[in-house]
Design a protein around this nucleic acid. Structure first.
Length: 805
DNA sequence: TTGTCGCGGGG
DNA sequence: GTGTACGCGACAA
């Protein structure tokens, strides 16, 4: 294997051109690149126009042989003007020829002519070439890869000029509904709203004028970045559609004669399909996103999804829920329900203005809080900022980094790895014991898989340069440095924010290196065997940790992938717990760091990945579908929470009391109807349900029909419950926004549900006899039942750690 | 019950 | 010319 200096490997991660402050790049096939830069010292915006050579990688020169003398050899870096040039790349990789031209259209037509001749039919787009016939990127990415430039060098996040806008519309369908207000905020102090009523115009003319004023305002404020929540899924497609309907040109960018451009995307906006009754035949339309020259379009929904993917603690992904979760919502935040916004506007326009401004303020806060990672990625990878903000880390970031690294090293790139049928094996999951245990410790290995890749030098077979591991090594080191630097800087400062963002971005990349290996068909250097070696090492390591912990006298409860829960003997203090974890950690390979993650007073282990924990400050944590499901009836969830809390506090009579009390309240109908109802989302129209009703009756629709409702729309949410006699019933509103409360629910049914569905989640904590006693019906007393006070929860061993191979 | 597909968001 | 994962709910078999 060739060896590379640290400086060369740094170039793989960061590129090599030090041009600072690039905030946007727009390039086309003609070989023109427009680059907007902010001068670090003054914040002034400058625009540069430059020429670059478009390029592609080919397996051979066959497609260009028809050029004869028109195809010239040129050493790397040489740029023979007017000619199509090539040079050979080293190594066994498929893409061994680098070809380039001043004008990408000339290169493209030469390739198309060659392909047409070879295949004997007209080929008119590069996309029609067979797989792996050529490797080519978007013009902007070609420019960034060969120039070694990246976005945002030396630029703090807060130096970006950012603007947020939010449309308020009469509904969700852009073909039918209209924009009536837009709120706008930017990072230089603007906060304003535009609306249809301002200019004395009405009807279509007023909306068209509103769109023109929005374009003018955005161009005047001239932001580098435009942000909103669901920007690509709602605001942009809505704006584009309304502008088209009114014949208004959307001049939002920094090149006057260029308007909004569509690009294909996996997620984004799909025309039609929301509420149309008859599904159109054939393919669903492709999702599209939009691009604007000179500005980066950032959707905070992408940042929220990326955050929640790692942390998994958000109540939902909507703007309001996320803003509240992060404490970004002001105390006097105005809320208006989505379908009430237009009606509110007609009565109380100021309230809607306030609401819409709160929206853009929250978006600005959210974009800063979560947008740092993509900003930092854009300082490394050769792609536009907006692409890095919505890309997956493996295909969207690591793959482009590797392509740039190989070209920089003059090395041929391999074809996309294809699956060879080898199954991808997963992580280990063990349930050692079920029931109740006390004095719980959680220990885990952070970043287990990348640590194993580094420890055992596991890399893709086709990665001749060892570039993936080199990137992971450098990322791990650079991340430690960035974290350490951040700690020395003032909290909340721009500098600290920038280092924290860098550390976050690096963590994302490091943790995606393993996913990269397993993404067969998606990533260029995927290698299932290497991925399987990582998981196999991971399983061995988890088994080793478990055996060594057990050998030190603790009781193992559950282990999953990279972490383990166990109970320690009576009398151990935290110091002894930590010392035990440290002892086992010392037995592991040096790059694998086992850490003490937390300690808890008690745990109910129910099923794999389903458990309850009681913290030492008496907080109850429920994990897994058995304990928290949006489908559960609220009275049952409430019972379960209270009963589990009693159980973990060792208050068995309390468990019994909660059960008896819930039964009594059900029988006396003291529990509000809303507590026994579940929310259902309607997916069938009345016509469709009518057609299937004979075969199968569904509770939600039966409830609607029983309530005399024959019309409803798809997507509507209704609350339903089982009324006396077992009939499905609809829980309607009481007219004041709260649910009605007829209390005519089927008591016998909900009594049975309490025992068979909810109490059953505590079954593994007791012997069968004790469980029967504890959840016996007080209306059917048994003569032989032992006293509840005598019952002790149990812990049932299921798997001996010594049996782990 | 089990397998497959689609969604999450926006007014 | 794109390409996540995860957990859940709806539907069909």
């Amino acid at each position: 294997m060739r060896s590379f200096t640290a400086a060369e490997q740094d170039e793989w991660l960061w590129g090599w051109d030090s041009t600072p402050g690039i905030v946007s790049v727009w390039a086309d096939m003609s070989g023109r690149a427009l680059i907007w830069r902010r001068l670090i010292a003054t914040g002034e915006l400058v625009r540069e126009e430059t020429r670059f050579r478009l390029w592609a990688l080919l397996p051979s020169l066959e497609l260009l042989s028809h050029l004869g003398d028109g195809l010239v050899h040129a050493a790397p870096g040489e740029e023979p003007h007017g000619a199509i040039a090539y040079h050979h790349l080293e190594g066994p990789g498929r893409f061994a020829y680098f070809v380039s031209a001043d004008d990408g259209r000339a290169l493209e037509s030469a390739l198309l002519a060659g392909a047409s001749a070879r295949l004997g039919r007209k080929i008119s787009r590069l996309g029609e070439l067979e797989d792996e016939a050529a490797l080519y990127l978007q013009p902007e990415e070609q420019y960034l890869v060969t120039s070694g430039r990246t976005y945002f060098r030396d630029l703090p996040f807060d130096a970006l000029r950012r603007l947020q806008f939010d449309l308020e519309t009469t509904g969700l369908n852009p073909e039918r509904d209209a924009i009536f207000l837009v709120s706008v905020k930017d990072s230089s102090g603007l906060e304003t709203t535009l609306d249809v009523a301002e200019k004395g115009l009405t009807g279509p003319a007023a909306e068209a004028d509103l769109i023109r004023r929005l374009c003018a305002l955005i161009c005047e404020r001239d932001p580098d970045v435009i942000e909103n929540h669901n920007l690509h899924g709602f605001d942009l497609p809505f704006l584009v559609t309304r502008a088209r309907i009114h014949g208004v040109r959307l001049t939002l960018g920094r090149v006057p004669h260029l308007t909004v451009k569509e690009r294909a995307a996996g997620r984004g906006y799909r025309a039609w399909g929301d509420e149309s009754d008859a599904e159109p035949d054939g393919e669903r339309p492709r999702a599209v996103r939009y691009a604007i020259p000179g500005r980066e379009l950032i959707d905070t929904l992408d940042a929220v999804r990326r955050y929640d993917f790692a942390v998994r603690d958000l109540p939902g992904h909507g703007l309001k829920a996320v803003a509240r979760h992060f404490g970004l919502a002001p105390a006097d935040r105005e809320y208006v329900q989505g379908d009430q916004i237009y009606a509110t506007w007609t009565r109380d326009p100021d309230r809607v203005r306030h609401y819409a401004l709160d929206d853009v303020r929250e978006v600005a806060g959210l974009a800063r809080m979560l947008g740092g990672a993509a900003f930092a990625l854009a300082q490394m990878a050769p792609r536009r900022y907006e692409r890095l903000a919505d890309a997956g880390p493996a295909t969207g970031v690591l793959d482009p980094l590797l392509v740039r690294a190989y070209l920089r090293a003059g090395e041929a790139l391999p074809a996309h790895a294809k699956g060879d049928g080898v199954e991808h094996t997963g992580a280990a999951l063990y349930l050692f014991a079920a029931g109740v245990a006390r004095r719980i410790v959680k220990a885990d290995v952070s970043s287990l898989y990348p640590s194993l890749m580094r420890q055992y030098r596991i890399s893709p077979r086709s990665d001749r340069l060892g570039a993936l591991l080199a990137l992971v090594d450098r990322l791990v080191e650079a991340r430690l440095a960035a974290k350490a630097r951040a700690k020395t800087l003032p909290p909340g400062s721009s500098e600290r924010y920038t280092d924290e963002a860098l550390s976050g971005a690096m963590k994302i990349l490091v943790n995606s290196a393993y996913g990269y290996l397993g993404a067969v068909g998606l990533t260029r250097f995927a290698d299932v065997d290497a991925a399987n070696e990582v998981t196999a090492r991971g399983r061995d390591l988890l088994a080793l940790m478990c055996r060594e912990l057990a050998a030190r006298g603790v009781t193992l409860l559950e282990a999953d992938t990279d972490g383990v829960y166990f109970a320690v003997p009576t009398g151990w203090d935290e110091e002894r717990e930590r010392a035990t974890v440290a002892e086992v950690a010392a037995l592991l390979p040096p790059l694998v760091k086992l850490e003490f993650e937390g300690r808890y007073a008690a745990m109910l282990s129910h099923q794999p990945k389903n458990y309850a924990l009681l913290t030492y400050d008496d907080k109850l944590l429920l994990r897994g579908v058995a304990f928290r499901s949006s489908r559960s009836e609220p009275y049952g969830e409430a019972f379960l929470r209270r009963a589990v809390a009693c159980l973990l506090r060792d208050d068995i009579p309390g468990v019994r009391a909660v059960y008896v009390e819930t039964l009594d309240r059900l029988r006396a109908r003291l529990i509000p109807t809303e507590q026994v109802a579940i929310t259902a989302r309607l997916t069938k129209t009345p016509t469709i349900y009518e057609a299937s009703r004979a075969q199968r009756r569904e509770m939600a629709y039966e409830a609607l029909l029983a309530a005399g409702r024959t019309k409803w729309s798809r997507g509507e949410r209704v609350r339903v419950y089982r009324a006396t006699g077992g009939a499905a019933a609809l829980l309607e509103d009481n007219g004041e926004g709260a649910p009605a409360d007829p209390r005519n629910y089927d008591v016998a049914y909900y009594v049975r549900l309490l025992r068979e569905t909810f109490a059953a989640r505590l079954e593994r904590a007791f012997t069968p006899d004790d469980f029967a006693t504890l959840f016996a019906d007080p209306q059917q007393p048994s003569l032989f039942a032992p006293p509840v006070e005598a019952i002790q929860p149990t812990l049932t061993p299921l798997l001996d750690p010594r049996d782990l191979v």
